[in-house]
């Protein structure tokens, strides 16, 4: 994980979030409060600005800065969760190890379990793929499948859980943005 690669990843993720902003918000309108696109877009815009302003010395600093900026700028559920993900990645040496550490941070912070219809359902399968030695592209594929698998689920965590049975039939917004995160990784990390 070179600093350059990570920076490319984050830039691409920011781009994808911006492109899919309305789609993410539409998903969140169906089963949440219509702000997931705006939240992540605001956050990643702030991340790029922060990295621009004071380029971090190494990969760990870059990941920490990213996590801290997300925590400071996003709010809602996705701020602490995406923030924790990046903050926890800072300790590891390889991308698979980093993503696993981040994933565990997300689990600890959000207390969701697989199948609760959250970003966990995209992140978990991606970590498992990487740990099984598959490529980042395959991990992105696993995340996308995890996102799709949230569609029929009844949410048990996050705002969508308030809908009960009515939450079924829609993809989870956070799982969808997490699939974008992995897609960006596949396009930028070796």
């Amino acid at each position: 994980m070179s600093t350059e690669e990570l920076q490319a990843w984050l830039r691409r993720f920011a781009e994808l979030v911006h492109e899919h902003k309305d789609e993410l918000t539409a998903l969140d309108s169906a089963i949440g409060d219509a702000d997931h696109g705006a939240n992540l877009d605001r956050g990643m815009t702030a991340v790029l600005a922060a990295l621009e302003e004071a380029p971090p010395a190494d990969a760990a600093a870059l990941l920490k800065k990213t996590g801290a900026t997300l925590v400071s700028k996003v709010g809602g559920a996705s701020g602490p969760l995406y923030g924790t993900l990046f903050l926890r990645m800072a300790g590891a040496d390889t991308f698979p190890a980093a993503l696993r550490a981040g994933y565990e941070g997300v689990l600890a912070r959000g207390k969701a379990e697989p199948g609760d219809k959250t970003m966990v359902d995209a992140l978990g399968p991606a970590c498992d793929a990487l740990d099984a030695g598959r490529s980042v592209a395959e991990a992105a594929q696993a995340a996308a499948e995890g996102r799709d698998a949230t569609v029929p689920l009844v949410a048990r965590k996050g705002r969508a859980s308030y809908l009960g049975e009515r939450s079924a039939g829609h993809a989870d917004p956070g799982a969808t943005s997490t699939a974008l995160l992995l897609q960006a990784a596949a396009e930028t990390l070796s």
Partner: peptide, 11 residues
């Protein structure tokens, strides 16, 4: 005061 319908941040 957070953004509209978005929890404020820890800061």
């Amino acid at each position: 005061a957070g953004e509209v319908f978005t929890s404020p941040v820890p800061d």
